[in-house]
């Protein structure tokens, strides 16, 4: 089964969807959308550095994403105008990464694959790495779930319960860097943030508990991956963007559903 590229692609997509869903919920709850963007965009810089230094792409991306996420998370405690700062960092990371890649004239680099993903080219080794990353992220989230939730609701209540909000922030930072590293191959740097945010936002009107929202987000993302892959095959469209488009469509449906439900109740 794993010898078939379609199966590998589907499995890779579903794994990334499962890792991104609970993390995406925290990104939405804590209003860190730009944080996700900045970290994901920094991945391109990681690709460039990895190619220059001839180390594995995954390691390069992981390192740079971790660095970027820590920078942003460190600055967020300093009361700097976050919105602007994150905007600056997200886009400069992308631009500088693209410039750095262009210096690599000697090596043939398929930039599109890194910007938009190349899910159909996922090999067995990639699949193993993606599975490992997903298991790591899911274990991290499961282990810290209650503490993360408490710290997300109120830093002071967290302190009063003996939880260090800074440490929980670090957990999210690390998880985000891992997700970026494993999702790069699947949806590409430009659309990783979409895989974090859209499924979570779609799940919100349909859920009544934080855990429910994470599970539904996982379901939404899985359906988006499966339906996106199929549609991309049928309509011959780029796979990553098609998956995100399907997720966006589901977001619209879920919003309409909740609006009409509220309208009927009134």
């Amino acid at each position: 089964m794993l010898d078939d590229f379609i199966w590998r692609a589907t499995l890779a997509g579903i794994l990334v969807a499962m890792a991104a869903a609970p993390l995406g919920c925290f990104v939405v709850w804590r209003r860190m959308a730009y944080f996700g963007d900045a970290t994901a965009h920094a991945a391109i810089l990681g690709v460039a550095l990895a190619l220059m230094m001839n180390i594995s792409i995954l390691a390069g991306v992981l390192a740079v994403a971790l660095l970027m996420a820590s920078c942003v998370s460190l600055l967020s405690g300093r009361g700097v105008a976050m919105d602007t700062l994150l905007g600056v960092m997200a886009h400069s990371a992308l631009a500088i990464g693209l410039v750095a890649v262009s210096f690599l004239s000697g090596i043939r680099v398929d930039l599109n694959a890194y910007l938009f993903g190349d899910i159909l080219a996922v090999g067995k080794q990639d699949l193993g790495l993606i599975a490992g990353g997903t298991i790591l992220v899911l274990s991290l989230m499961a282990w810290r779930w209650s503490a993360l939730l408490t710290a997300t609701m109120s830093e002071e209540l967290a302190h009063a319960s003996g939880i260090q909000p800074r440490r929980e922030q670090l957990v999210l930072t690390v998880a985000l860097a891992i997700v970026v590293a494993v999702a790069l191959k699947v949806v590409g740097a430009l659309l990783i943030a979409a895989m974090l945010i859209i499924p979570a936002a779609t799940a919100r009107p349909l859920s009544r508990s934080p855990e429910g929202m994470a599970l539904i987000a996982g379901g939404v993302a899985t359906v988006a991956v499966a339906a996106g892959l199929k549609s991309a095959y049928v309509f011959d469209t780029p796979t990553g963007p098609t998956i995100v488009s399907v997720a966006a469509l589901m977001f619209v449906l879920s919003s309409l559903l909740s609006w009409s439900y509220q309208w009927v109740r009134q």
């Binding site: 939405v28 709850w29 804590r30 209003r31 209650s146 503490a147 939730l149 408490t150 997300t152 609701m153 967290a158 319960s161 939880i163 979570a200 936002a201 919100r204 859920s207 009544r208 508990s209 934080p210 429910g212 929202m213």
Partner: peptide, 17 residues
């Protein structure tokens, strides 16, 4: 509490233990 975070009173009281 961010409105995007769905949580019931019971669940809120069960955090972190």
């Amino acid at each position: 509490l961010d409105p995007t975070l769905p949580v019931s009173v019971a669940r809120f009281l069960d955090l972190p233990r």
